[in-house]
Nucleic acid binder design. Structure first.
Length: 201
DNA sequence: CGGATGATTCACT
DNA sequence: GTGAATCATCCGC
C-alpha cells in the first residue's frame, strides 16, 4: 500500500507529478491520522527551472533536502505564514520536487475541519498548497522526513483518473520565473472542487 | 547587520 | 479586485 522508496527515485519529475494525482497522502500526529487524495500538483524541474529553489544549482541550508535522494519531504515557510509541502524525487544531487497544491479530504475529516475551522464540504478546506498542508497538520517539523516512515507517507489506493480527466497548465504564482512560468507543469483533476484556482478543462 | 522577498490566504471594499 | 499579514531565508555591505 505505502509507496516504496523506489517509486520516488523516478528521474522524470513530470511523470511523477502527474502520477501522484489520485495517490493518498497520510500524516500521523500523535493519535491523529488524516489523509487526502492528491488532486493538484506542480513539478519543479531541478537546476534548470527558474521557478525552483534549486535553480542554477543553488544550494543552501534551506534547499538542502532537495538534493537528497528522492523519497523525503521538503517543507518550507512561504510569506511567513504558510507551510508548503513538496515530495523530493529523483536521485541524490538531482534536486527535482513535486509541490502538492491540493488534496481531497478522505480520512480524519473531523480533524481537518478542526485544524481549518470550516466544514470539509467547503472546497477551500484543502485547496491550495498552504491550505492543504494545514489541513493535514504539516508544518516545519515535517521537513526532510522519510516518506516511507510512520509520520508522513503516501499510499496507492488504486484511484486512477482517465487521461481526459487530467488537465495540464502553467504553474501558479511563479511569474518571477519569467519564460519558465509559462511551462505546463501544473497537473490537476478536471472539475474537482478541491483544486485551487481554475479547475475546469 | 539590514533590507528585500516570496511555489499564499483571507478579510474587506 | 485589493491589500494586509508575517517571518525565515538570502544576499549584499
Amino acid at each position: 500500500m505505502k509507496l516504496p522508496h523506489s517509486y520516488y527515485s523516478n528521474q522524470d519529475v513530470l511523470f511523477l507529478a502527474q502520477n501522484l494525482l489520485g495517490k493518498v497522502l497520510f500524516t500521523e500526529i500523535g493519535d491523529a491520522i488524516t489523509a487526502g487524495i492528491i488532486v493538484e500538483t506542480e513539478a519543479y524541474f531541478g537546476v534548470q527551472d527558474k521557478a525552483s529553489h534549486a535553480y542554477g544549482g543553488r544550494r543552501t541550508n534551506r534547499t538542502e533536502p532537495l538534493y537528497s535522494h528522492g523519497g523525503i519531504s521538503y517543507v518550507y515557510l512561504c510569506y511567513g505564514i504558510h507551510h508548503l509541502f513538496n515530495v523530493v524525487s529523483s536521485v541524490e544531487d538531482d534536486p527535482h520536487a513535486v509541490l502538492i497544491r491540493a488534496v481531497e479530504p478522505l480520512i480524519g475529516k473531523e480533524i481537518m475541519e478542526h485544524r481549518r475551522n470550516m466544514p470539509s464540504s467547503k472546497a477551500t478546506i484543502s485547496s491550495g498548497p498552504g491550505s492543504a498542508a494545514k489541513a493535514l497538520g504539516i508544518d516545519q517539523s515535517f521537513n526532510k522526513k522519510d516518506l516511507t516512515g510512520d509520520e508522513i507517507w503516501i499510499e496507492d489506493h488504486g484511484i486512477l483518473y482517465k487521461p481526459d480527466e487530467i488537465i495540464t497548465g502553467p504553474r501558479i504564482g511563479v511569474a518571477y520565473a519569467q519564460e519558465d512560468a509559462l511551462l505546463p507543469w501544473r497537473f490537476f483533476v478536471k472539475n474537482n472542487k478541491y483544486v485551487s484556482k481554475p479547475n475546469k478543462g
